[in-house]
Structures are given as C-alpha cells and as structure tokens.
Computed example of a mutant assay.
Amino acid sequence: MKANIDIQSWFANCHSNGVELGLKELLYYKSKSRLLDLKPKGHIRSAQAGQYLAPHKGRGMEFAEVRQYQYGDDIRAIDWRVTARTGEAHTKLYQEEKERPVFIFTDLSNSMLFGSQLLLKSVQAAHLSALVAWSASQRGDRLGGVVFSEHSHHELKPTARDKGVLAFCHQLCDVHETSLVNRDNKNTSRFNDNLKRLKHLAKPGSLIYLISDFSELNDESFSLLEGLSRHCELIGCQVSDPFEHTLPAYSEAIEVQGTNSAWTLPLSDKQFRDKFAKRAQDVFSARLKRLQRAGMTMLNFSADTPLESQLSR
C-alpha cells in the first residue's frame, strides 16, 4: 500500500465499504476517466461510421494522401493543383472513419467474492469496469457489456453517452448484490456461457475488456477467446488478492472455512508458505501465458490498492 494514500479518506470519497457495491462509488470514477487511454492499438474493422480510422483508403472525412490517378478512381477526387503542376493526373485519397464500440465483460462469480485487505476482488472488478465505461463515454464510444455470476447475468447492447454507462453500472450493482446473497450456494461456472453471449453482442472491430480472476477457465474458454481475438481487440484485466500470491507469517495455525469444507493453514511454517508462494507463481504464470496465446493483452490489478495508485505508476 502506498504511504501517501489516506485509505479512510479514500473510502469516504469513493463511498465504498469494500464489500457491498453501490451506484455512488461507481459514479466516483467519472472524474477519473482520464486514467485510461482507450485509443485503438490496431486497425478498426467495423462497418459502421464513427471516429476511428479504417486501414483502407476511401471516401471520408480524413485526408490521407495524393497519388497518381489510377483507372477506377473517382474523378471528383482529382487534385487539380497537383495535376497541373506535374502534368499527370493525381487524385486525393481519404481514410474512411469507423466506429469502435467498447464492451466490458465483468465476472462477479463466487471466486471473486474474496478480499484480505482493501476490497473484495469483485468490488475492485466493478470499480475497474466503471472506470473503463466512463473513459469510453468520454471518448464518445458506444458502450455494451455482459455482467455475470453463477446466479444471474445482464447484457447491454451498445449504447451511447452517459445513458449507457449508468445502465451498465446498475447491472454491476444488481449482479453483485445477487452474488453476495447467494455466495454460499455452489453453482457451476457460467464463464463460457457468457463468453458466447459476448460473441453475439460484439461485432468485428470492437474493443473488449474482460475483467475477472480467470480462475475457472478450461479448454473451451480459451477456444472462445481465440475466436473473439480474431476480430476484436481483447484486453484482459486479471484481478487478484495478495493472499492468493503469498501467505502472511503468523504465530499460530489458522482455520479457514470454505463453502463446503474447512482446512488449516500452518502460517507459522515458513517452508509451507514458501511452497505455497512457488505454486501460486507457477499457476499465475501459466494462466497468463495461455491467455496471451489466446490473443489477449493482459493487465494485472490487485484488490489491495485503489485503482488510482495502480494506474498512476
């Protein structure tokens, strides 16, 4: 934790308690939207008009270059000044503008309902989702998404301006509340089902943020992600808690109660802690490499620090 952050003041300003999720704490990130840059990193392959530049030349708003006239060029685009100066016909080319909707895929499953320090992972995932949403709105992008857990899900078709962001934030609050109420009920992961919903929603050329701990993935998950990455830009935001990476030293063993079982953590045993840390590192490293192979740009976020600190580093 950075020493220059007053956590109590941050909680008050953010209107958060770290466990429950309210609309006010998601509205907080409207003023933080400049922390994210959603500028496209590749060519846009959408068929709808908008503010991003397509890779091919055509009629449009953005001038690209002048070249010698070729058979089939539109004679209305002839540059008469260059033609007169060179004695050969030249034509103006324009770069066609395209739209890039932004989709947010937010996982609020049971595995996300964990936190050892500042926030539950699910709350941090919702904060990050809100930040992406407000940033998209500020750029003028239409926003869509899927918010889900084992117990419920909501879909949002691309909607413009603050209206889309507010609708999405309400979805985050609704699904998170349902998850907390039903957290003791063991249901099957719905990750793949919701990836399929996302595939139907997101058109080619979309920017997709996937926000999860990615702990429930299987071969089908990676296949679905590879399919999405062929037509869309995928950014994966892995949210984790420090407790998942290293165990704290403690003088006594700790009893841990899970949903259907209990076990003992011998935190006084350094060998046990080192073995846990090594295994955790191997698991996270293997998962990261496979997600990258699936075509995702991966970012890591911790639930123990406000997003402002992590994004300003």
Results as ranks from 00 to 15, higher is better:
M1N: 13
M1E: 12
K2N: 14
A3M: 15
N4R: 09
I5H: 07
I5T: 14
D6P: 08
I7F: 13
Q8C: 07
Q8G: 07
W10I: 11
F11H: 12
A12T: 14
H15E: 05
V19T: 13
L21Q: 06
G22C: 07
K30M: 04
L38K: 08
S46Q: 02
Y52G: 01
L53C: 00
G58K: 05
V66M: 05
R67C: 01
Q68R: 11
D73R: 06
R76M: 00
W80A: 06
W80H: 05
V82M: 10
G87C: 06
E96L: 02
V102T: 06
F103Y: 07
I104R: 02
L108A: 11
S109L: 04
L113A: 10
S116P: 11
K121H: 09
L131R: 12
S137T: 10
G145P: 05
G145F: 04
G145I: 03
V146D: 03
F148K: 01
F148L: 02
E150M: 11
E150H: 12
H151F: 12
H153L: 05
H154Q: 05
K157M: 09
T159K: 00
L166P: 01
L166G: 00
C169V: 08
C173P: 01
T178Y: 06
N185V: 12
K186W: 11
K186D: 12
K186S: 13
N187I: 09
N187D: 10
S189N: 06
F191Q: 07
N192H: 02
N192S: 04
D193M: 03
R197I: 15
K199E: 15
A202M: 01
A202N: 01
S206H: 03
S212C: 03
S212M: 03
D213R: 05
E216F: 01
N218Y: 01
F222N: 04
L224I: 01
L225D: 03
E226D: 06
E226N: 07
G227W: 01
S229E: 00
C232Y: 00
E233Y: 00
L234R: 03
I235T: 04
C237T: 02
S240L: 14
F243C: 06
H245F: 13
S251P: 09
I254N: 09
G258E: 15
G258W: 13
T259D: 12
N260P: 02
T264A: 08
P266V: 13
L267D: 13
S268R: 10
A277C: 10
K278F: 11
S285H: 15
L288E: 13
L291I: 11
Q292F: 03
G295F: 04
T297Y: 04
S302P: 14
P306G: 14
E308S: 15
E308N: 11
S309A: 14
S309T: 14
L311E: 08
S312M: 14
